[in-house]
Each structure stands twice: as structure tokens, then as C-alpha cells.
Amino acid sequence: MRARPKRREGLRALLWLSPWIAGFSIFFAYPLASTVYFSFTNYNMFTLEFVGLDNWRYLLQDDRVWVSAKNTLWLVVFMVPAQVVFSIGVAQLLTKLKTGVGFFRTLFYLPTLVPMVAGTVAFVFLLNPVGPVNQILSWVGIAGPDWFGDPSWSKPSLTALAVWGCGNTMVIFLAALLDVPKHMYEAAAIDGAGAWRQFRSITLPTIAPVLMFSLVTAVIYALQYFTQAMIASRVASGATDSAGSSFTPGYPEGSLLTLPQWFFHAAFRDSNMGYGSVLALLLFATSMIFTLILLRQFRKAEEVHS
């Protein structure tokens, strides 16, 4: 008798979950399986031929993949920490403010709302070699670089854009910081702990789970970095988009090329669905590593919950 309601609950759950199960099969399981299949073919949507491991072998010869990997690594090593550290800093500042918190919080958050394309286009303009930012820099005697046109400055410029729009992370940290019990700081202050010690021994341990979560998601998003880099390359290179021109992502000098862009180019611009599938799987494998880390975080969190 006792087993029946439970089994029924399982059936009911199945019914309720059915849209998602359908979605999962159609838009994840099946496509993933066929991506594996396509990776062994030469397919341009007109003709399909089985080529075995050719695409995979080409992966090893394709220097753009290494360029993309290097760029992504840069993003993970510099952009992600910059974003996270900055967000914590701003959030921390907000907790210390006595007046105007609401005003500042809203103001700091606003850039996050600027649509990615709009923000990127705006930054490319602001940071153009004769643009407003370099003009302002010249007032203090600094000759600004050609931000988005110089391969050694293009990624830092995008980092500036990322930091500018860090509102979401900031809000998350703000909530976490406000969760730290006030009396702990007071006790620490009485013990004579300075601001840095307080941060290290009280704040950091309390927000550690949130920090970890933010870092991992930020890394996963860095692996997917597409829109901002694509738009920045497009607009900064002055690719006219006029008929007869073709645009290869990565300007300047491949410094903004990332794997998702290279995949997009290979599969949908270069009509090479087979090789594109190889790149897609590479992308899948790398992001899966971090997703697994994330899943472990979740499982830990779930165990605490139940």
C-alpha cells in the first residue's frame, strides 16, 4: 500500500516533467549525439561524406584553435578575477556607506542593464584612438593607445567593459556580505583586528561558497565569450559589412578570437559543419570540466539544505 502513492508520484512527476524531457531530448541529447556523428563527416549542408578522423586531425593543425585557447586562457586568468575582485570591492564599499546607499547601488548596477551589443559598440567608440577617453587622458598628459585596434590592448579593453557591467556579481556579493553577522566584526574590532584581517578571517570564509560559485560561473561564461568580442572586432576593424566583404572574427590580429566565434565561423560562415562539430565538441569538453566542478558545489549545497 505504501509503495503505490510513491510510484504514482513518480508517474505524476514524469507527466509534469514531460515538456522538459522532450526539450532535453530534442535540444540537447539528440543534437549532442549528432554533433559527434557530424564530426566524422565533411558536411556543408549540400553534400555529406564520411571522412573518419580527418576533422579531428585538422584540429591539431589549426593554429586558430590555439590562438582561441590562449585568448580564452587570458580571459580566465585576468578578466574573471578582475571582475570578481572588483565586484567584491564595490559590494564591500556599499556595505560601508552610511548615506546614499540606494542611489549608489542603483547607479553601479545600471551599466549591467545596457544591452551587450550597445555597450560594446559604445566602448569601441569611446576607446577609439581619437575618441573621448584618449582625449581625456591627453589632458593629464597620457597618450592613450589604440585600445581596440592594438592586439595587446584589445583584451584589457574588453575587461574594462566587463568590469563596467559587473552589477550582477556585485549584487550577489552584496547580499552575501550583508549576511555576515555584524557582531563578528565588532568582536574582531575589539580584538584589534584591522580591516584586512577582518576581511580575511571573517568576511572571506562567510562568502566563500558564493565566491566559489561566482568564480566557476564566470569561468564558464568566459569559455563562452562571444558577443562582445565579435562586436568589438567587427566595429573596430571597420568591417564594412558591405556586400562582397567577408569578415573573419578576431580583429585585431586574432587577439579577440575565441572558440565559440571560431566555431561559428567554421560551421556557419565557412560552411564546414563537420569541422565545426569538432570545435563544438572541444567547447563542450572544456566547459563540461567546469560544469562538473559547479555540480559538485551544488551537490554540497543541496546536502546542507536537506
Binding site: 505524476r12 512527476a13 540537447f28 549528432s34 549542408m45 563544438a280 559547479l294 555540480l295 551537490r299
Partner: peptide, 30 residues
């Protein structure tokens, strides 16, 4: 609901959430 595979289902939700949209783009486009 309590059912078998509930945890797995949730983990799969997170996996798909974190999946770069490019990974399965080719077959879906087709």
C-alpha cells in the same frame, strides 16, 4: 515531487544551463 532520478534531473538542468549554445547549434540549425 519525490521520485527516483530527481537529483539527476536537477543536475541535468544545470548542465544544460551551463552548456555553451554553440555546442549543439549545428544539428538544431538543421
Amino acid at each position: 515531487f519525490r521520485f527516483r532520478g530527481r537529483k539527476l534531473a536537477f543536475l541535468l538542468v544545470i548542465t544544460t544551463m551551463m552548456l555553451p549554445p554553440q555546442v549543439v547549434a549545428v544539428p538544431i540549425y538543421l
